[in-house]
């Protein structure tokens, strides 16, 4: 359960979020909004990557400003550009890197790494250089590296934006099957079809909060009303 209480955030004198109050407990929560609406900042608040200028964010009662490390153990984060997320030269090394502080033996690490890569269809690529993977495979690897630590909550910031239709379908299916709570920022409205809760962010405020159909309708109306940015 994530609680956002009276949160505003500014970069310099530019306010990107103002007066946000939310309780995020549902299994699947989507976030939509125009570029620059503040939705990426909202996502980054959830694991303490961004600490709010005013107000506070609680993850299972932990304040992201005080216990960022603890929050990040609970909340995994997937970005849109897999090339920036994969930090190790080979596939298995990148997944193992996530487990470096888990006090596991070499065999146990190899076990878990092999297990999750097999589940993500990358079992045959353990020692493969990461830069030779396709974009879709890279994003799956990024996901595997986050999920191997078994976070309770997964936040995704446009995880399919840089992928083609087939690859984004594959990533979407994988996300669909997760047991974790997933909070996903996306421009791909098809991904959110049927979701119980979708937030619409506009000019730093949550302007709609409800089932996917209503929220997406509201978002489309907003975008059509002559406010492209």
């Amino acid at each position: 359960m994530i609680q956002i209480q009276g949160v505003s955030h500014r970069y310099g004198d530019r306010e990107v979020l103002s007066g946000v109050d939310l309780s995020l407990g549902e299994d699947r929560i989507g976030v939509v909004g125009a570029n620059g609406s503040g939705k990426s900042t909202l996502a980054r608040l959830l694991n303490g990557l961004v600490v709010p200028t005013t107000g506070r964010v609680l993850v299972d009662g932990m304040d992201t400003a005080r216990d960022g490390a603890g929050v990040r153990r609970k909340v995994g984060f997937v970005f849109s550009d897999p090339d920036a997320q994969i930090v190790m030269p080979t596939v298995a090394e990148d997944v193992a890197f996530s487990l470096r502080r888990h006090g596991l033996g070499k065999a146990e690490v190899a076990d878990r790494v092999g297990g999750i890569l097999a589940r993500f269809g990358l079992g045959g690529h353990l020692d493969h250089p990461a830069h030779l993977l396709s974009s879709g495979q890279k994003q799956l690897l990024a996901l595997a590296s986050v999920l191997v630590t078994e976070p309770e909550i997964l936040v995704c910031d446009e995880p399919t934006t840089l992928l083609d239709l087939r690859n984004s379908r594959q990533v979407a299916d994988l996300l669909e099957g997760l047991t974790q709570q997933v909070i996903m920022v996306t421009h791909d409205l098809d991904l959110l079809a049927g979701w119980a809760r979708v937030l619409v962010v506009n000019e730093g405020q949550v302007v709609q909060d409800g089932p996917a159909e209503q929220s997406i309708g509201r978002y489309k109306a907003l975008m059509g009303a002559g406010r492209p940015c």
Partner: peptide, 8 residues
Amino acid sequence: MIQPSSGG
């Protein structure tokens, strides 16, 4: 655009 909070 978004700076990591740890930067400073």
